[in-house]
Simulated scan of single mutants.
Amino acid sequence: MAVWLWVVVLIGAVWLADWGADHLADPLRKIRRQWGVTGTGGAALLAIVTASPEVAINTTSALRGVGGIGLGNMLGSNIVSFPLIFTIAYLASRRELTGNGGTTQRESDGESPIDGAETHSAHIQQRLLRLDRRSVTVLVLPYLGILGLLALLTIPEQWQGLQPIDGVIMLVAYGLYLTQAVYRGREEGESVEWSTKELGLAVAGVGALAVGAYFTVRATESLIAAFGISEVIGGLFITATMSTAPEVFKTWRVVKSGQVTAGTTSVVADNAVTVTIGFLPLALVTLPIQNMLLFSVNLAFVALMPAALALLIHFGSDDHGLKRWQVGVLDSLYLLYLIVMAFGVLQLL
């Protein structure tokens, strides 16, 4: 089949996987309301669903014997997602909050209705992307801890490669990550109602997710063969970019509705799922790391993005947020990554 047709298949498969994840998200949102989970903790809970396309892609690549695609997707999506999501969020937040969207944001950030609207107007004038200060301690710092554990399990010479025991350890690490995020600042829950249609769509979502993941991997395999590149490179720059694209559109919609923190910092929780639950299927097939330089450089940039974000949020503004130049820093880090890869790492392969 022609290359352009596989590109169409790839786009359609990613959209299908995203549709499936969307219809799994609504039931999980209701669970969050029942449990009284805060907006920041809810981002970690909902990430189980929103990151499910990446997990499904990794699982499919492991089952098909092309684990390099999953490995590249795991690393690449955790790098490109930060500059993409925060840039889109900044652009989407350049509007006044109105209606229910403004109320949602004010409730999320614990502000009074009047102060919330005034504060957001001030942030527009200051060109500030406002974020809940709890996102750093609840989501970003624990995520950095997970990445440190991942490096410890995969980089030392005696432990190189992805082993089944590594997958189990990372799964336990995510359990701890989710537990602390959900229970910190937990509030009183509320009653919700479940409909048969909603549950039926959730079941359909599971099927769509599986089919979309399968064809995403199949399309990437074909494009890799056509371009003559390795599985990991294909995963880094083809699969990872495509699997992140739906999150960009979601971020635009959610942030424009006024849910700035939830729509933006969910990317951190998504990435935590990708490197833990998404790590497990690759580890279960005992995936070797063919090029440690390629892996190490990418893992370093995976960690550099959230580390820079934490510093920018904590020290960059008294109001805990990102100004335009700070969003530009994240974009510059991705540009640096591309330069290092193009003129350094890839030249040595």
Rank of each mutant, 00 (worst) to 15 (best):
L309D: 06
I339W: 03
Y174L: 11
V14R: 00
S121C: 01
A204Q: 10
V260A: 06
L84C: 00
V248D: 04
L129F: 02
G101P: 00
E96F: 08
L75Y: 03
D115P: 00
G185V: 00
L144V: 07
G161E: 08
G321W: 06
E157L: 11
F343W: 13
V140I: 15
P113R: 10
D18R: 12
M292P: 04
L293P: 09
V217T: 01
I238Q: 07
L335I: 14
L299C: 08
G76Y: 04
I124G: 03
A25C: 12
E231K: 02
I165A: 13
D331F: 06
S135H: 01
G278T: 01
I229M: 10
V49A: 14
L24C: 04
V9M: 11
I289C: 11
A51C: 10
H123K: 11
V168T: 10
R64D: 13
G20T: 08
V211I: 15
R253Y: 08
T87P: 00
A62T: 07
D115F: 10
L97W: 15
P306I: 04
V192A: 10
L346Q: 08
A117C: 00
L131N: 05
L280W: 05
I233M: 12
Y174K: 05
V7H: 05
P306T: 06
D18C: 09
F279V: 01
R184N: 09
V255K: 01
G68V: 03
L24M: 14
L91I: 15
V14E: 00
S135R: 02
